[in-house]
Structures are given as C-alpha cells and as structure tokens.
Nucleic acid binder design. Structure first.
Lengths: 126, 126
DNA sequence: AAGACTGTACTAATACTACTAATACAAATG
DNA sequence: CATTTGTATTAGTAGTATTAGTACAGTCTT
C-alpha cells in the first residue's frame, strides 16, 4: 500500500505527505477509510514514528484526514474537495508571489511577510 | 547621522537597512546625496564592513540607492517613489497571505511556494 | 606614480533552525 | 490487563543564515 522509495531531496515527512495525498485523490484510499498506524508505516519505511506523526499532523491540519487518540487516523469525508481547494489556493498564491517579485520585492521580504502575518494570525487564537 | 542602537532581535544588516530607508523617506538624506562609506558606518557602529555591505546590496536591489565601485553609494533619484511602491506591494501581498491562510494553507506551505517561485524566477535570468 | 580612499569577492567561524530520532505518556480496545 | 492507538517531550544532527576576517580591484587626489 505505502510502498515508496525515499528520495534525498525533500524531507521525509513531506514526501510521505505527498504520497498519502496522492493515494487519497487517486481514490486508492477511500473517504472514511482507516490509515495505517504511525508505527506501522514507520516500520515499513524504517523511519521514526515521530516523522510519520508529523505527516499526520499536517494532513489533519489540511483537513485531509482526522485522528482519534487511541483509535486511529481516517481519511476525511471531504478530503478530495479540500485538496482541490488547497491546490487552487496554492496556484493563486503563487501568482501573487510572482507579481510581488515583479514589482521589486525580494524573496527575503516575502518570506518575512509570510512569517509575520502567520504570527499575528496565531496570536488571535490565544 | 547614522546614530542608532542595535537591538538584539533582528539581524544587524536588516536594522541598518530600515534605518537608512527611514532617513531617505523622511528627507534627511536627499536624492543623489552620497552615503557614508561602508567602512565609515562599520566604524561608527563597531560592526563588520561586510555587514554594511550586505545592507547596501539589498538597498541597491530595491532601487533605493546605487553603488559605483571605487566611488561611493548614492541615494537613487526615485528612492521615495520606489519605496512607496514597495510599501504598497508589501501591504497587498500581506493581504494575499492572510487570504491563503484563511483558506487552509499553512505557513510552511506558503514559505515553500515563495521559495519555489523565487527559484524558478531566478532561473530565467541565466 | 603613489598612497589613501571606494565598493566588492572569498573564506571561515558562529548562531540558529528544521529535521529526525529516542523515549515516555494517556486513552481505548479486546 | 495487556496491546495498540495517537500524542507530547527531549535531544542530537544537519543544513543554513549571520557576521566577521581578509584580500582584491578600481578611482581619486596629491
């Protein structure tokens, strides 16, 4: 199921996340279906369970899956829809980045703005 | 002229850049005026000339100043105009970041997109 | 032409941060 | 009650940004 070769470029948790996302949007994993346990995947790929955990946390934040402590993690009912929305948002945001670069802002400035806005946003939820 | 106390939070080259930008937009440094030499500022602030150099490179990339090797660095004729455009662009981009966050993208994803788009853009100029 | 300026390039040491791992905890299930 | 689940905490490691040290090349004044 989760057979995959780990490349050297991107972080492991990210490669795994993309792999699982692919399985969901391709339909190989159906909505509501239970995902393998973190230790199960970690064992198969011979990586640390915490790395899988990080993948699951991010997938849950995206809304593609949801995790229940002591039970398991499951594919979200609206996983495909959410993924499509995220893709469209990413594309639109990429265009905004291109425009900002063309208008003279640097990559460093854009990274700084993203960090600052994210930080301020996080403060609101406290 | 360049009296300023260096805080601990932000990088020195960044603090200096903001200071000089402030001097330009406030009118204390007029367009065409020559800026102090990198070693001069470095001596006053007891920092490394290379740190000042980094500030000048970034200011030149922004278009606020221009440097002539073996001569000096000068305030760009259109410095105020360019700075205003940059500020407006920053504000608009910040709104785009807020929207993307609200739509479910994470700070990490946004940072990744900024890096990727910047990278692809840099390749075009080769 | 010589010496004192200018910006610039290269290398290295340090600080910081992301990534991964090791371990322990808490709840549910059979 | 033992096993399996997700989760939290801590630490080590690697990659990267920041800053400094040093050297280079061109210009200007005398």
């Amino acid at each position: 199921m989760f057979s995959m070769k780990l490349q050297g470029g991107a972080p492991i948790h990210e490669q795994l996340r993309e792999r699982i996302t692919q399985l969901i949007i391709s339909g190989e994993m159906k909505e509501g279906e239970k995902l393998p346990a973190v230790r199960e995947i970690a064992k198969q790929l011979t990586i640390n369970p915490n790395t899988v955990q990080k993948t699951y946390v991010e997938l849950e934040r995206q809304g593609l899956i949801y995790s229940v402590p002591a039970k398991g993690s499951y594919v979200s009912p609206r996983a495909k829809y959410i993924n499509k929305l995220n893709q469209q948002t990413s594309e639109t945001f990429a265009e905004a980045v291109e425009a900002a670069l063309a208008l003279g802002l640097s990559e460093e400035e854009l990274l700084k703005i993203v960090s600052e806005v994210s930080q301020n946003r996080g403060d609101l939820s406290k």
